[in-house]
Computed example of a mutant assay.
Amino acid sequence: MMLRGIHHAAVICGDYAVSKAFYVHTLGLRIVAEHYREARQSWKLDLALPDGGQIELFSFPDAPPRASWPEARGLRHLAFAVDDLDAACARLAGQGVALEPVRIDAYTGARFVFFSDPDGLPLELYETA
């Protein structure tokens, strides 16, 4: 088996309209497809990442909140690569997104910052340029 990369990451949200606005307008992801699945009373929104990957945004009735603190087993966070961390932080802060302080990766020297989506999912911007 030869893995070539991550095709998509799936995110379950609490309020579909709020999360859709966040991922589309705040993060600037392009909508690939949007479907309402009547049998599951669930929206599925496919969003394109610039590198060809995707985020699938799902809504399910009565989905329980994600345990983030203290950190639980499982996926820790979703990180996005950016060329200019300062510009990306300024754009998010200008849209009211609360950012943690910028940190330096002790092993690579790269700068990164954490923030959350509307459901508290930890997201990261990681400067790659």
Rank of each mutant, 00 (worst) to 15 (best):
P61S: 07
H77Y: 13
D86A: 15
A88R: 15
G28H: 07
E56T: 00
R40W: 08
A87T: 15
R73Y: 05
Q41G: 08
F60M: 08
E56K: 03
V32C: 05
A90I: 04
F58R: 00
G53Q: 14
A87Y: 11
R40M: 11
A79P: 10
S42F: 06
A67I: 14
R73T: 10
C89D: 09
I31G: 00
L75W: 07
G52E: 13
R66N: 10
K44E: 08
P61F: 07
R40S: 04
A88T: 12
R76L: 06
A90T: 14
D86C: 10
A72H: 14
E38A: 14
H77T: 05
D83N: 13
F80Y: 11
L47Q: 03
P50W: 00
R76P: 00
G94P: 11
R76A: 10
P61V: 06
A48S: 04
R76K: 08
R73K: 07
D84F: 09
S68V: 14
L49C: 15
L85A: 10
I31C: 00
A88E: 15
P64K: 05
G28W: 06
P70A: 06
D84M: 09
L45V: 04
L92V: 02
P50Q: 04
G52P: 12
E71G: 09
Y36A: 05
L49N: 05
A93S: 13
D84P: 03
H35K: 14
D83Y: 04
L49A: 12
F58T: 02
D51M: 09
A39F: 06
D83V: 01
I55C: 05
L78H: 00
L49P: 02
G94Y: 12
E34C: 09
V32S: 08
D62N: 14
R37H: 12
R91I: 12
G28F: 05
L92G: 03
L29V: 01
L45S: 01
E34H: 10
C89N: 04
S59K: 00
L47I: 00
I55K: 00
W69E: 15
P70R: 05
D62C: 03
A81R: 13
H77L: 11
A88M: 13
G94I: 07
R91P: 09
